[in-house]
């Protein structure tokens, strides 16, 4: 375990998701307040308000930030990831979105996550463990717009891959920003190709933009050993 976290200390690739230990560990370390908070939100499933435009799925916004100068550990990850709120309609989405700062205005090593309700933005989650993600690295200055286009396509069901999409992440890093979209089945090539094509279309990317698909099992492997030939994770 320790090795894993040590290896991650310098990782700057948006793979903060490896920072946590097993879900059991995290359960133990949750404070009482957080427990209460999460229980209430679980009991009270969000529904679209009268006259609102329903979404195909409910989604949850999360925010995480790595505390500078502190080693990433189970405890610090659990403290650093914060549930912002869940929504079930287009109007409810905008309420949250318009009350959050834009990713381009974030500072430090931080991430916004937007995942289907019930799926945690971690690869250990049942929905993610066989999955992977498309990663696009962006020059500074593009993150807010690309993130908006990405999540609008996801909420609007523009990817057309059935139940495959799990969520999306924008990672603000020192010299670049990274956006990614996670799906359930990394081995399903028809699905991953379709997601790639839709990404190109909705993000309006130049044709030669580099897009990288990474399975979560690879992310885990590389984060454990930092193999010299694996380059940056």
């Amino acid at each position: 375990m320790n090795n894993k976290f040590d290896a991650l200390k310098d990782d700057d690739s948006g793979d903060h998701d490896q920072d946590q230990g097993s879900p059991k560990d995290s359960e133990k370390e949750k404070t009482e307040d957080e427990d209460k908070e999460q229980n209430t939100s679980k009991k009270k499933m969000v529904v679209p308000g009268a006259g609102e435009h329903p979404l195909q799925y409910n989604y949850t916004f999360w925010y995480s930030r790595r505390t500078p100068g502190r080693p990433a550990s189970t405890q610090s990850y659990e403290q650093n990831i914060k549930q912002i709120g869940s929504f079930a309609s287009v109007e409810q989405f905008w309420r949250f979105y318009s009350h959050m700062i834009r990713p381009g205005d974030l500072t430090g090593h931080s991430d916004f996550h937007l995942f289907k309700e019930g799926i945690k933005p971690m690869w250990e989650d049942d929905a993610n463990k066989m999955g992977g993600k498309w990663i696009i690295r962006l020059r500074k200055g593009l993150a807010s717009r690309c993130w908006e286009n990405l999540i609008l396509a996801m909420l609007g069901e523009q990817f057309m891959v059935g139940e495959e999409i799990c969520g999306a992440v924008v990672s603000v890093r020192f010299q670049e920003d990274i956006i990614s979209i996670w799906n359930k089945t990394a081995s399903d090539q028809a699905t991953t190709a379709r997601i790639r094509d839709t990404l190109r279309r909705v993000l309006n990317l130049p044709p030669n933009t580099i897009m990288e698909y990474k399975t979560h099992t690879d992310s885990i492997k590389y984060s454990l050993g930092r193999l010299p030939w694996s380059g940056e994770c």
Binding site: G49, G51, I84, S98, H99
Partner: peptide, 9 residues
């Protein structure tokens, strides 16, 4: 409706 503050924030 989209400009309101969410109930739980």
């Amino acid at each position: 409706e989209a400009r309101k503050k969410p109930e739980f924030l």
